[in-house]
Write a protein that binds this DNA or RNA. Structure first.
Lengths: 152, 152
DNA sequence: TCGCTTATATCGAAGTTCGATATAAATGGG
DNA sequence: CCCATTTATATCGAACTTCGATATAAGCGA
């Protein structure tokens, strides 16, 4: 089991890395719940915010819900004014889901809450650590991009 | 709004960082569901794995559930053989929850799934990027530790 | 001991999710 | 152009989750 790593830094211990991410996420993910919206609901809003308008069925790929549950959930989101539904002009069977301004507001405010939270943590870092963190955002972006390719 | 940053690297753009973490988590968090366990259930298992035996009430602090929901959830976990309940020797009212070997197995296998997943992504990185990632685990650990102090 | 607090349990109502199935629009071969 | 098939969403009833209110029971302080 010799390492093929060329000694440019510490070996990459994936178990340690994954553990550190899991631990950090414990703090990062959990926000005070807004408007009594469930985890599933917030996930749908976040997906629509990130990927733009999509069909209901396409959401079943990312959200871990079956289609009937999504129909119910989206109906509620529409009643609450967070998502609008219109027929897909290209396919009369389908429905295009779009975040309303209010729906986007929720996603943005949750992002802002996380930024504020991380800002409080970062205050306690040294200048060197802060600089390292700055470089990290790009690397994470690379990983996400690779994931989008690799996971089909 | 002048930056007080000393020019050791790119400025730390928190909004970019938080966005990158959110995006990455989209891929990182979602695993194929094991044994039909819900998000709440998995979260409880993960917390018990990380912090060791705890009381039901202490779980209400981290899990976003009220006490009656946790009582129900834990009863199911006990029926399924994933946690064991015993009276707290220090307080006859309380119950100490401990992961069983089987419960730990689930947590470990989910960790292993994530490691395997990240391993596939990391293959596509350059040596420099891999080295940067190795250093990152420690930094995330620092942040988590700071969070544990700051968030009371 | 008594009264107050704290830890968990129980209960019924509201909300969520599922599998099975219905409806309705698209698509392709004849 | 029609029919059979496929695909997108909706509906339905059952099972499960979560909640607020309240019950039970153990600790705790005067």
């Amino acid at each position: 089991m010799a390492s093929s790593q060329a000694g440019r830094g510490p070996a990459l211990d994936l178990d340690e890395l994954v553990g550190a991410i899991e631990e950090f996420n414990t703090y990062f993910i959990r926000l005070p719940s807004v408007r009594r919206l469930s985890f599933s609901t917030l996930s749908v809003l976040h997906t629509l915010a990130g990927k733009g308008p999509m069909r209901l069925t396409d959401l079943t790929a990312t959200e871990q819900l079956k289609q009937p549950a999504l129909t119910t959930l989206v109906a509620k989101l529409e009643r609450d004014g967070l998502v609008s539904r219109r027929p897909d002009p290209r396919d009369g069977r389908a429905v295009l889901l779009t975040l309303t301004e209010e729906g986007m507001g929720i996603v943005r405010s949750r992002r802002a809450d996380r930024v504020a939270r991380v800002a409080r943590l970062v205050e306690h870092l040294s200048d060197e650590e802060r600089a390292a963190l700055a470089r990290y955002a790009g690397l994470l972006g690379r990983l996400t991009e690779i994931a989008a390719r690799v996971e089909d």
